[in-house]
């Protein structure tokens, strides 16, 4: 995980559910590129390919609501998206994003201020987003949770924990 994430924004509205992000019939895949081929396809023509030219998704309230499917975060990463900023997240998506190593930021003010194509820079370490010369602050994650994200997700975190344990014994 990079401390600073910069790029072009694609903008979604409220209540983007995880069935939209990745329909249930594709959960047979685990590979992120394979999942990404079907991400957001329920939204119709042009999806998901038009998202590939953007770097950061910005959404309204309750992003990732619905099913607890972890592949929602995986599929977004497969599209080359580097972070998601939303006014708020559903709790299952929030956890899954961290566990999948996808940086997420809750920042209602930024979500309201940007539109498609805008350039923003997220500074995860400082807890702020730069947009058009303005600073938007957001609360930093607890250190224990950030650690998972920094290592690239829960599987990598677990692996490092297990390695530490076996080295200790």
């Amino acid at each position: 995980m990079r401390a600073k994430i910069q790029g072009r924004v694609y903008k979604f509205g409220d209540n983007i559910n995880s069935d939209i992000i990745i329909p249930g019939r594709y959960l047979i895949y685990v590979d992120r590129e394979r999942l990404a081929q079907h991400a957001f396809e329920m939204l119709g023509e042009g999806f998901p390919d038009k998202l590939r030219s953007f770097d950061i998704l910005v959404a309204g309230r309750n992003f990732g609501c619905g099913s607890a499917r972890e592949q929602a975060a995986t599929a977004i990463q497969g599209l080359g998206i580097k972070a998601v900023v939303a006014a708020s997240f559903a709790r299952t998506f929030y956890r899954n994003a961290i566990n999948d190593g996808l940086p997420i930021v809750e920042c209602p003010a930024l979500a309201a201020a940007v539109k498609e194509g805008d350039e923003i820079e997220i500074d995860l370490e400082a807890g702020k987003i730069l947009f058009s010369g303005r600073e938007f602050v957001f609360p930093r994650m607890p250190d224990s949770v950030r650690k998972i994200l920094e290592l690239g997700g829960l599987a990598e975190y677990l692996k490092s924990q297990l390695e530490q344990q076996s080295n200790a014994t």
Binding site: G66, S67, A68, R69, E70, A73, R91, T92, R95, N96, N99, D100, G153, L154, A155, L158, L162
Partner: peptide
């Protein structure tokens, strides 16, 4: 499964997590 909340019908705290986290709790 997100609908683990149903276990509260019997007074248990049920909540959904992803498959990687399930593996983590298993271990």
């Amino acid at each position: 499964d997100s609908h683990c909340t149903i276990y509260g019908s019997l007074g248990a705290l049920g909540t959904g997590i992803g498959y990687t986290e399930v593996a983590s709790v298993w271990i």
